[in-house]
Amino acid sequence: KTRWTREEDEKLKKLVEQNGTDDWKVIANYLPNRTDVQCQHRWQKVL
Rank of each mutant, 00 (worst) to 15 (best):
K1I: 15
K1M: 01
K1L: 00
K1G: 08
K1Y: 15
K1R: 04
K1T: 15
T2P: 09
T2Y: 06
T2R: 06
T2L: 06
T2E: 08
T2I: 08
T2K: 12
T2C: 05
T2V: 07
T2S: 15
R3A: 06
R3N: 09
R3G: 08
R3D: 09
R3P: 06
R3Y: 15
R3Q: 08
W4L: 00
W4E: 02
W4Y: 02
W4T: 00
W4R: 01
W4H: 00
W4G: 01
W4D: 00
W4C: 00
W4P: 00
W4I: 01
T5S: 08
T5E: 05
T5H: 02
T5Y: 04
T5R: 05
T5A: 08
T5P: 01
T5D: 07
T5Q: 03
T5K: 12
T5M: 02
T5V: 03
T5F: 11
R6M: 13
R6N: 09
R6C: 09
R6L: 14
R6A: 13
E7I: 09
E7A: 11
E7C: 06
E7D: 09
E7L: 09
E7S: 11
E7W: 06
E7K: 12
E7Y: 11
E7H: 10
E8C: 00
E8Q: 04
E8L: 04
E8G: 00
E8H: 03
E8F: 00
E8K: 01
E8A: 03
E8N: 03
E8S: 02
E8M: 04
D9S: 04
D9A: 01
D9I: 07
D9Q: 03
D9W: 01
D9V: 04
D9E: 06
D9R: 00
D9P: 00
D9F: 01
E10F: 14
E10Y: 12
E10Q: 14
E10W: 07
E10K: 13
E10C: 13
E10V: 04
E10T: 06
K11Y: 13
K11V: 06
K11P: 00
K11C: 06
K11W: 06
K11R: 09
K11M: 07
K11L: 10
K11H: 08
K11I: 07
K13F: 07
K13C: 05
K13D: 02
K13M: 15
K13Q: 02
K13G: 09
K13E: 03
K13V: 09
K13S: 11
K14R: 12
K14Q: 04
K14H: 15
K14A: 08
K14C: 09
K14P: 01
K14L: 09
K14I: 05
K14E: 13
K14T: 05
K14F: 07
L15Q: 04
L15W: 04
L15V: 13
L15T: 11
L15M: 14
V16W: 01
V16R: 02
V16K: 03
V16P: 02
V16S: 02
V16M: 03
V16L: 04
V16N: 00
V16Q: 00
V16D: 00
V16H: 01
E17Y: 05
E17C: 03
E17R: 14
E17I: 13
E17P: 05
E17T: 11
E17H: 12
Q18H: 10
Q18D: 05
Q18V: 11
Q18K: 08
Q18N: 10
Q18G: 08
Q18L: 07
Q18R: 09
Q18S: 07
Q18E: 07
Q18T: 15
N19R: 09
N19Y: 10
N19I: 06
N19V: 12
N19Q: 15
N19T: 09
N19F: 08
N19D: 08
N19G: 08
N19A: 10
N19E: 08
N19L: 15
N19H: 06
G20P: 06
G20D: 13
T21H: 06
T21C: 07
T21W: 04
T21E: 06
T21S: 14
T21A: 10
T21V: 06
T21I: 12
T21D: 12
T21G: 08
T21K: 09
D22I: 05
D22Y: 04
D22S: 11
D22G: 12
D22F: 14
D22A: 10
D22W: 05
D22R: 10
D22V: 13
D22N: 15
D22L: 10
D23Y: 04
D23T: 06
D23V: 06
D23A: 11
D23P: 02
D23G: 04
D23W: 01
D23C: 11
W24V: 00
W24E: 00
W24Q: 01
W24H: 02
W24F: 07
W24S: 01
W24C: 02
W24A: 01
K25Y: 07
K25V: 14
K25C: 14
K25T: 11
K25R: 12
K25I: 09
K25F: 08
K25N: 12
K25G: 12
K25P: 10
K25L: 10
K25W: 06
V26L: 13
V26E: 11
V26C: 12
V26M: 15
V26I: 11
V26F: 14
V26Q: 11
I27Y: 03
I27F: 03
I27V: 07
I27S: 01
I27G: 01
I27M: 04
I27P: 02
I27K: 00
I27W: 01
I27H: 03
I27C: 03
A28P: 01
A28M: 03
A28D: 01
A28R: 03
A28T: 04
A28S: 14
A28Y: 00
A28G: 06
A28C: 08
A28E: 03
A28N: 03
A28K: 03
A28I: 02
A28L: 01
N29A: 08
N29W: 08
N29L: 08
N29Y: 15
N29I: 02
N29E: 11
N29T: 14
N29K: 11
N29M: 05
Y30T: 08
Y30L: 14
Y30Q: 15
Y30C: 06
Y30E: 10
Y30K: 15
Y30A: 12
Y30I: 07
Y30V: 08
Y30G: 15
L31N: 02
L31T: 03
L31G: 00
L31R: 00
L31P: 00
L31C: 02
L31Q: 03
L31K: 00
L31E: 00
L31H: 03
P32M: 06
P32H: 08
P32C: 07
P32D: 14
P32K: 10
P32N: 06
P32L: 07
P32Q: 09
N33S: 13
R34V: 02
R34G: 01
R34W: 12
R34L: 03
R34Y: 15
T35C: 04
T35W: 05
T35A: 14
D36G: 09
D36S: 12
D36N: 10
D36Q: 13
D36T: 09
D36R: 05
D36A: 12
D36F: 09
D36Y: 07
D36P: 14
D36C: 11
D36K: 05
V37I: 12
V37F: 10
V37G: 09
V37Y: 14
V37S: 09
V37M: 13
V37C: 05
V37E: 09
V37N: 11
V37D: 13
Q38N: 15
Q38V: 05
Q38A: 14
Q38T: 05
Q38K: 03
Q38M: 15
Q38S: 07
C39M: 02
C39W: 02
C39F: 01
C39V: 05
C39I: 05
C39K: 00
C39G: 00
C39L: 03
C39D: 02
C39Q: 00
C39S: 03
C39N: 00
Q40W: 09
Q40A: 11
Q40R: 11
Q40C: 14
Q40I: 08
Q40F: 05
Q40M: 14
Q40V: 05
Q40D: 09
Q40G: 04
Q40L: 08
Q40S: 10
H41I: 11
H41D: 08
H41W: 12
H41G: 10
H41S: 14
H41F: 11
H41P: 01
H41N: 15
H41M: 13
H41E: 13
H41T: 13
R42P: 03
R42F: 01
R42W: 03
R42M: 02
R42K: 03
R42S: 01
R42D: 02
R42L: 02
R42H: 14
W43K: 02
W43D: 04
W43H: 07
W43L: 04
W43Y: 13
W43I: 03
W43M: 06
W43N: 04
Q44F: 07
Q44D: 13
Q44K: 12
Q44E: 15
Q44C: 12
Q44R: 10
Q44Y: 06
Q44S: 10
K45W: 10
K45P: 02
K45F: 09
K45N: 14
K45D: 12
K45Y: 13
K45G: 10
K45Q: 12
K45I: 11
K45A: 12
V46F: 15
V46Y: 15
V46G: 09
V46L: 12
V46P: 05
V46N: 12
V46D: 15
V46R: 10
V46C: 08
V46M: 10
V46A: 09
L47M: 15
L47Q: 03
L47A: 04
L47G: 15
L47R: 15
L47I: 15
L47E: 06
